[in-house]
Design a protein around this nucleic acid. Structure first.
Lengths: 97, 97
DNA sequence: TATATTTGGTTTATAAAATAAACTAGTTTA
DNA sequence: TAAACTAGTTTATTTTATAAACCAAATATA
């Protein structure tokens, strides 16, 4: 009756990151940190998890001399995100069928 | 930008329980267990948490000689549920504004 | 030119949650 | 009367989320 919610996405911060990434071509660590309001440590950990799951690609480059971590959502990530949204919606409508 | 998701509802099982309760007058432990597919232990713990938060009322009665635990959602619970749904929806739409 | 301070992170430690396994108390059935 | 079942609760374990501490390099400051 209630399908399982992808545990990788059923996390406030990871969901927020995916939400941001799905709307843009790419986003860097600083951007994600600002938009989500997360601490750097927490964000670092959650980005790593999304990467391990291949929901996002992570590219470590340099902006001049400063490091810059760029994230992009993958097709697999888009798929998973859309699926999560669809699944949790079924928890919302009153007349559960 | 991303509002915090009520941690009491951001749990697969508790959300499922609330989803069921919002659609009915009342439901007992056995019904909730069957519909959610949860183990009795897990369900017991999560019902207790929802009760503590006053999101549901729990009434322990007897059906003949067998114990029967009846749950009902409270107005506060309805409010919280609706708020949770509204909040998480903001994580879904691509063009985060 | 030392020396703070800031930037952009990672690693490690801690607290909280979810979950399952074990247990209880009583009931029904063989 | 003993085994199995019902309707749960309690306890223990695993997993998560999160913050705190740390690091290396860059930049600003005295």
């Amino acid at each position: 009756m209630f399908k399982e919610l992808d545990p990788l996405l059923h996390s406030q911060l990871r969901l927020a990151v995916m939400s941001l990434l799905i709307g843009v071509e790419e986003a860097d660590f600083v951007f994600l940190k600002e938009k989500t309001g997360a601490t750097a440590g927490n964000l670092s950990v959650q980005i790593e998890k999304l990467k391990e799951a291949e929901y996002i690609d992570v590219e470590k480059t340099f902006q001049g001399k400063m490091p810059r971590t760029i994230c992009r959502i993958t097709p697999k990530g888009v798929q998973a995100f859309e699926n999560y949204v669809k699944t949790i919606q079924t928890y919302f409508n009153t007349n559960n069928k």
